[in-house]
């Protein structure tokens, strides 16, 4: 029992070792004079700045604003892309019609379109939410379409043989069958949404984590700038872990691939 606990602890320690080594290198390279401390402050200084930003509530304020935008854009993406993807995936004619358009749009960088969004929606919240929506919807849409198409035909046949109506078929066979693929899209786009958001906030904004980063750089508060970067990484990490946990619960029925 105690041995098991120890082993588990050791396991966790091992998987965090790489991070620890990285932080140590970060700490000592500037301290040993291998890098300019002005441009690359040691990690302890960054940590102190992060702490200061946290206790003064500055970080929290920016974080909340960023999260609000991300959740709005992301939610909108889910709400529109999943039903649209189901539709496109299910009706072969629709897919053939819209596919070239989708492929073109997908290749258009969201950041390239940001000026267009600003022109259309102004510099306020709407343009930021719009750009997040735009960038998250592609992974969700495309994964939903491929998910629908990959539903085992035998299952559809089986459900139809039991007299399932089209609506029942969609609800009880297509959606659950496509779910693992849809969820992959959701995970991808969650990461995207944060990346794009930061960039958008750096280009034109007066609040949010991206703005904090931008502002710190201009004011030459280098440790604060790094602190903002670390916060973003942690945020991305948290979102990803959350989604993995949720996805794991929802796809419990899937056969686990043994670790080798």
């Amino acid at each position: 029992m105690l041995l098991n606990l120890f082993k588990k602890l050791l396991g966790h320690t091992y998987s965090l070792l790489a991070v620890a080594i990285f932080l140590l290198i970060w700490e000592f390279i500037p301290k040993l004079g291998l890098a300019d401390t002005t441009f690359l402050p040691p990690f302890s200084k960054v940590a102190a700045a992060l702490w200061k930003l946290t206790v003064t509530g500055v970080l929290f304020k920016h974080l909340i604003i960023s999260l609000q935008r991300a959740v709005l854009g992301f939610g909108l993406g889910l709400l529109i892309s999943i039903p649209l993807g189901l539709l496109i995936g299910w009706f072969k004619g629709v897919e053939r019609f819209v596919d070239p358009l989708l492929q073109t749009f997908r290749q258009t960088s969201a950041l390239a379109l940001f000026p267009v969004f600003i022109l259309l929606f102004g510099i306020g919240e709407v343009s930021k939410v719009a750009i997040i929506f735009w960038s998250v919807q592609w992974p969700i849409l495309l994964n939903t379409i491929s998910g629908v198409k990959s539903v085992e035909p035998l299952l559809i046949k089986s459900a139809r043989s039991m007299g399932a109506s089209s609506f029942t078929l969609l609800l009880k066979v297509i959606v659950p069958g496509a779910f693992p693929s849809i969820f992959t899209g959701i995970r991808l786009s969650a990461t995207y949404s944060i990346l794009i958001l930061i960039a958008a906030e750096m280009i034109g904004s007066n609040a949010g984590l991206g703005f904090l980063l931008y502002e710190s750089e201009i004011k030459f508060e280098i440790p604060e700038m790094y602190a903002a970067i670390v916060t973003m990484s942690l945020l991305g990490l948290a979102v990803n872990y959350l989604l993995v946990a949720v996805g794991g619960r929802l796809t419990r029925w899937k056969e686990e691939i043994p670790n080798t």
């Binding site: 046949k157 089986s158 043989s161």
Partner: peptide
């Protein structure tokens, strides 16, 4: 198709996301 005829196929065609009980209840 109608529920007066039941079909059993070679490939089982069980819904992998449903438990055994829920499959039988489909």
């Amino acid at each position: 198709p109608a529920l007066d005829r039941g079909i059993v196929m070679q490939g089982y065609a069980l819904f992998p996301w449903r438990t055994i009980r829920k499959n039988v209840e489909f």
